[in-house]
Amino acid sequence: MRQTTLITLLSVGVMTVALFYLKHEVTTLEEELELLNKTIVSDQEAIHVLRAEWSHLNETGRLRELAEKYLTLEPVRPAQISTVPIPPPTTQEVR
């Protein structure tokens, strides 16, 4: 009888401690998760705003002005486009 009680008490003790640690760990992980989620949301928002800003910075009128100011390039003219004549098939291809 005493043996059983002892074993029971011991296992209760072990389980309590184990449960406590488990619970503690879950709480810590949950806090971490919440923090990560918050970071994700704020990062998502930041990405969103940056995408809007990127699109705004790529506004065609602005790009044209900058290109005219800093680049010596100009829009492609039709005369600059050429088509490569298709070469006749090689002997291997014919076979």
Binding site: I40, Q44, H48, V49, A52, S55
Partner: peptide
């Protein structure tokens, strides 16, 4: 994982350039 929700969808041009978006 909570993702940003109930935001109005973006509008893009044919090349995926952002034409309208919602910022918080």
């Amino acid at each position: 994982t909570v993702v940003q929700s109930n935001s109005r969808a973006d509008i893009l041009d044919r090349n995926g350039i952002l034409l309208a978006t919602s910022v918080p």
